[in-house]
C-alpha cells in the first residue's frame, strides 16, 4: 500500500507545512482560492500550474511576504499572520535568477549570505567549509561567480540558500537551462537534503522535473486541482508522462 504522505519514511509522520482554506484576493480577483494541503518533513513537494494560476502568490504567503485574505497556514510551526519574520529564518529560498553576486568569489558570496542570516564568524567559517565539501565546490572557492559554469552556480545558489540550515527550502525553477548531467547532480543533492529531513518545495515548468518530486500539486485558477504522487497521476490520466497529465488537467477541463 502507498503510505499516505509519501516517500521519505522516517519523517513521514511530522508535518512542517499545514495550509487550510488559504485564500488571497487582490481587489475583486481571487489569486488563491480556498487552498488546503499539508507537507511532511523530508518531503519533496512539487508546485505546478500555468502562469498566473496562483503558485507564486501561495509561495509568497508561505514565505511570510504576503498576508493571506483568509484561511490559515503554518510553516515550521509558525503562523503566517503573526510570525512572518520568524518564518523567514526557517526557510531557504533559491530563485531561477540565482541571486548571487557575480563579481564576488564563491567564498565571498557564502560569507555574505551567512552574514545576512546573522551567523557568527565562526559559524560562517565552519558552515562554508562544510558546504563547499558537500557541494564539491572546494576547488573553486576563490573563483569569481561569473566565471562558474551554470550548473555550479546553481549548486552555489542552493548552498547560499541553505547556509542558515533552514528546515524548509523553496526552489523556484531551479534547473532552468542547466545541462542534463548537472540537473541530475542537483537532484541528487535535493534528495539528500530531503533524506536529512529538509522539506523541499519546487516550482517548475519542466514536467520531467515534476517526476522527481514525491508529490505534486497542480494549480489552476487559484485552486489546487490535483495533489498526488506523479506515478498515481500518470495512471489516473492514462498518461505516459507528467507533461500529458499537466496538459490534460489545465487544458482539458475547461473545454
Amino acid at each position: 500500500m502507498n503510505r499516505q504522505s509519501t516517500g521519505p519514511d522516517s519523517f513521514a509522520a511530522e508535518t512542517t507545512v499545514v495550509v487550510s482554506h488559504l485564500t488571497r484576493k487582490f481587489g475583486s480577483f481571487t489569486a488563491v482560492d480556498n487552498v488546503s494541503f499539508t507537507v511532511a518533513r523530508g518531503e519533496i513537494f512539487g508546485f505546478l500550474g500555468a502562469n498566473g494560476a496562483g503558485k507564486t502568490t501561495t509561495i509568497r504567503m508561505l514565505c511570510g511576504l504576503l498576508k493571506p485574505s483568509s484561511g490559515s497556514a503554518s510553516v515550521a510551526g509558525l503562523d503566517v499572520y503573526h510570525q512572518p519574520e520568524k518564518i523567514k529564518t526557517k526557510i531557504g529560498y533559491m530563485s531561477q535568477q540565482f541571486s548571487l553576486y557575480e563579481d564576488l568569489t564563491v567564498r565571498e558570496n557564502i560569507q555574505f549570505y551567512g552574514g545576512i542570516y546573522g551567523l557568527s564568524r565562526l559559524q560562517i567559517r565552519s558552515k562554508t567549509d562544510e558546504l563547499l565539501h558537500y557541494l564539491n565546490l572546494w576547488d573553486q572557492v576563490d573563483v569569481l561567480t561569473r566565471d562558474l559554469p551554470l550548473g555550479w552556480k546553481q549548486r552555489m545558489a542552493l548552498s547560499s540558500a541553505i547556509l542558515h540550515d533552514p528546515p524548509i527550502i523553496f526552489l523556484d525553477e531551479p534547473t532552468s537551462g542547466v545541462d542534463p548531467a548537472s540537473r541530475r547532480e542537483f537532484w541528487l543533492l535535493i534528495y539528500e537534503l530531503a533524506a536529512r529531513g529538509k522539506t523541499v518545495f519546487v516550482t517548475t515548468h519542466y514536467m520531467d522535473e515534476a517526476e522527481y518530486c514525491h508529490r505534486v500539486s497542480i494549480m489552476k485558477d487559484g485552486r489546487i486541482v490535483e495533489l498526488d504522487k506523479p506515478e498515481r497521476l500518470k495512471n489516473k490520466y492514462a498518461a505516459k508522462n507528467m507533461q500529458q497529465v499537466f496538459i490534460n488537467i489545465v487544458k482539458g477541463k475547461d473545454k
Partner: peptide
C-alpha cells in the same frame, strides 16, 4: 523559456 506547458504547446 519560462512558459508553462500549455502555453508552450
Amino acid at each position: 523559456f519560462g512558459v508553462d506547458p500549455v502555453s508552450r504547446a
